[in-house]
Nucleic acid binder design. Sequence first.
DNA 1: GTGGTCTAGACCACT
DNA 2: GTGGTCTAGACCACC
Lengths: 122, 122, 122, 122
Amino acid sequence: MDFKDDIPIYVQIEQYLYREIIQGNLQAGQKLPSVRQLAVKLTVNVNTVQRALQEMNSHGILYTKRGEGNFVTEDETLLAQMRKQTMDEELAQFVENMRKYGLERDKLVQALTEYLEEHDND
Amino acid sequence: MDFKDDIPIYVQIEQYLYREIIQGNLQAGQKLPSVRQLAVKLTVNVNTVQRALQEMNSHGILYTKRGEGNFVTEDETLLAQMRKQTMDEELAQFVENMRKYGLERDKLVQALTEYLEEHDND
Amino acid sequence: MDFKDDIPIYVQIEQYLYREIIQGNLQAGQKLPSVRQLAVKLTVNVNTVQRALQEMNSHGILYTKRGEGNFVTEDETLLAQMRKQTMDEELAQFVENMRKYGLERDKLVQALTEYLEEHDND
Amino acid sequence: MDFKDDIPIYVQIEQYLYREIIQGNLQAGQKLPSVRQLAVKLTVNVNTVQRALQEMNSHGILYTKRGEGNFVTEDETLLAQMRKQTMDEELAQFVENMRKYGLERDKLVQALTEYLEEHDND
DNA sequence: GTGGTCTAGACCACT
DNA sequence: GTGGTCTAGACCACC
C-alpha cells in the first residue's frame, strides 16, 4: 500500500531545510538553529537532525564551525543549482501526479493556465 | 513542522480510494474489495475501513448493496466533479508552493513549459 | 597533543574496507559480510558499521540489495579511480612524514632506492 | 582489525617523544618539560610519563640530572642511529603497504617519482 | 554553549 | 536471515 508512505524523517528534515533556504527564510551565510533546538522544534531525536545536517554538509549546502553551529553555504552558485534542482523535482512530482490523473503533457499547460485564470484574484 | 502531524488513518484511506478512482484503477460501477480484504491489504482495523467507506457513501461517491458490497457510483457527473476538485486541489498546492519559491503566475507557465521541453523523452 | 589521535571509527572502517578492496580480498561484485558480522568482527556497534557502509554507498563504491546485503561496485572505472586516490593519499602521508623528518623531495627517491637495495632479499 | 588494539599509553608517549626529537622540536642536550608538565599536557598520569622516560633513559636517548630534569642525549651518533632506524621502519611500512596494493619494487620508485612530479607545487 | 561520535536496543521492510 | 531508521543517553572536543 502506498497510503502510508514512508519517507525517512531525516530526508524530510532535509527537504524542509531546503525549502527554508529557497524561500529565503534561511539565507546564505546565516546560522541555523542549533541541532538540539531543531530536534525539539521538530520533535525528533538529536541524532536524526544530525544525520540530515551531515548529509547537507557533505553536499556542500551547509558548513560547520565546530563549537559554533551550522551555517548556510555562501556559495551562491551552489545555492542556485540546488534551488533549480529542488524546483525541478517539485515540477516532476506535479507532472507525474497529473499524468496519473490522465492529464498528458499536451493538456497540462492548458489546465494550468485555465486554473490561473479562474483564480486570478485570490 | 508538518512531517509529524498525523492525518487520521481513515482519512488517508479515503484519499487513497479517491486516487484509485481518479486514476481509473476503480471505475464507475465497479465493486470494491471487501471491507475485510481492504483491512488486511492496508493493515488497518476493519472499523477504520468501515468509517472511510461510510463517509464516501454519504458523499455519494460510493453506494452499498446490502449483502453484496460497496460499489463506485455510476453518476459520471459526480465523478467528473470529484475529479475536477481533486485536480484543482493539486494545482492549488502546486501554485502555492511555487509562489513560495518566488515564482509568480507569469513565470510559472513559462517554467512548466521549459521543464516539459527539457524532459521531452522521459 | 597528537599522540592520541582520533580518526573516527567509522572512517577507519571505511579505510579498512578500501584496503580490502584494493588488495583484492574483496572483489568487484562480491558480497560483503553482513553488517552484524562486521560489527562483531570489528567489535563495534552495528550502527557504526552502517555509517561506514552508508558513506561508501553514497560514494558509489558499494551498492545495497535490500534483504540481501552489500556488494562491491562492478564499475571498474570507479574502482580504478578509488584505488588511485587511496594510493595517492598513502603516498602523500608518506612524503609528509618523511618531510617532517627533514627529508625533502630531492632526497626522498634516493632514500627509497637505498632502502630497497639494502633489503633486496627479504 | 587493528583500530581497536590499544598500544600502551606509555609506549605512545615514547613514540611521541621520538618523533619530537627526530623532527628537531627537541634537540640534542635540550631539557624536556618537567614530568608534571608533560603529564598535564598529555592528560595522562605522572607515573605513565615516568615509565616512558625511564625506558628512553635506559636506551640512552635521554639522561637524567637529579634535581634538574631530563635531557636529550648529546650523543649525535646515537641520535643519528635512532633517526635512521625510525625512518627505516617508516620506509618498511610504506613499502609493505604498497606491496600489498600490488606495487612491487620496480614500480614503486616510479610511482613515487610520478607523484612528486604531479605535486610539485604543494 | 556548540557539533561529533558511539552505543544499545528497538522496530520496520524486504527476501 | 538481510539492511534501514529512530531513539535515548553518554562522552568528547571546540569555543
